[in-house]
């Protein structure tokens, strides 16, 4: 392996935390979705790294799954975002508070 596994892990952790930060701190729904994507890709990176380390295909298989899933998820969630924008005229996450107890 050219890149040490530890470096891979560090980069994926950084990506994950960055994504999490975006999800938690941003209020725009699209940016939150982008944060989720970054988190997912961080996890994917760690999986690929681990796959290369142990010379096993499981990690790659999982990543392929992950990519397919992400594509599907993005399609649906962007559609929902469009619908929500139409409904309330805003993409601010805090506007959607219908679940308040």
């Amino acid at each position: 392996m050219i890149v040490p596994f530890a470096h891979v892990l560090v980069v994926s952790a950084v990506m994950f935390v960055l994504g999490l930060g975006a999800v938690l701190l941003r209020r725009n729904l699209i940016l939150i979705l982008i944060g989720v994507e970054i988190m997912l890709n961080g996890v994917g990176l760690a999986l690929v790294g681990a796959s290369a380390l142990w010379q096993r295909a499981d990690g790659q298989v999982l990543v392929v799954f992950l990519m397919a899933l992400t594509a599907a998820e993005v399609a649906i969630s962007l559609a929902m975002v469009v619908a929500m924008k139409r409904r309330k005229g805003s993409l601010d996450a805090d506007v959607f508070r219908d679940l308040r107890g």
Binding site: V23, I32, A93, R97, R100
Partner: peptide, 20 residues
Amino acid sequence: GRLVAAWATGRLSSYLTALA
């Protein structure tokens, strides 16, 4: 129930924070 319901703010960010 109303007491516990105060936790449900309806704000996505607070739910996500709690999740994290």
